[in-house]
Amino acid sequence: MGGHAEEGKGSVSRRGFLKSAGVAAAATSLIDDAKKAMEPVGPAPAAAVRGETEIRFKLNGKETVAKVPPSMTLLELLRERLDMTGTKQVCDRGACGACTVHLDGRTVNSCLLLAMDATGRDVTTVEGLAVGDRLHPVQQGFVEEDAMQCGFCTPGMVMSCAALLAKNPAPTRAECAEGISGNICRCGTYLNIFRAMDRASALAKGGK
């Protein structure tokens, strides 16, 4: 695990491996990985790299300066240092999409991105999507079509949907499903999200 203490770090490479390897190989790796991951005993990890580095990036349009340890993820920076808790931590390994933010306009899982890698980039979180009191069409669509229940997946869903709408102003239901296929909802709001996207698409077309 190198100098990283977080569990999520190990899975970056694992996910890459899962993508490139066949299912059988992935299953074997999973069991090995599960064994390793569950073992709290054994030698202590190599001492984490201590110390902090100053980074600068744009956060929701504002120039932001933060001091971060090299192992800190963007998600941790947002939630734990900057108290921007709209972005949620759920699986901590890029499997659920709850931590989705926009990096230079593209969606990323902020749990898989080191905060230092945001240096000089443009980060938008769910808190930065509305303009003042005026909701983004996706947000408005979610409100009107009740595309939320507990609301914990909602920020990530909204960010994925907003990115999709920017690329594709009138997504079909299948395209919408593809667009949010990296986001998991447990309450079962997908059906409402499809409707919300239709609404958002209409709102966006009408110049809001």
Partner: peptide, 21 residues
């Protein structure tokens, strides 16, 4: 009727136990 806390949920302002700092 859209839920009264819908805007809080879609803007990230809704604060859960996990979000307490």
């Amino acid at each position: 009727t859209p839920r009264v806390d819908a805007v809080a949920k879609v803007t990230g302002k809704a604060r859960y136990a996990y979000d307490m700092n």
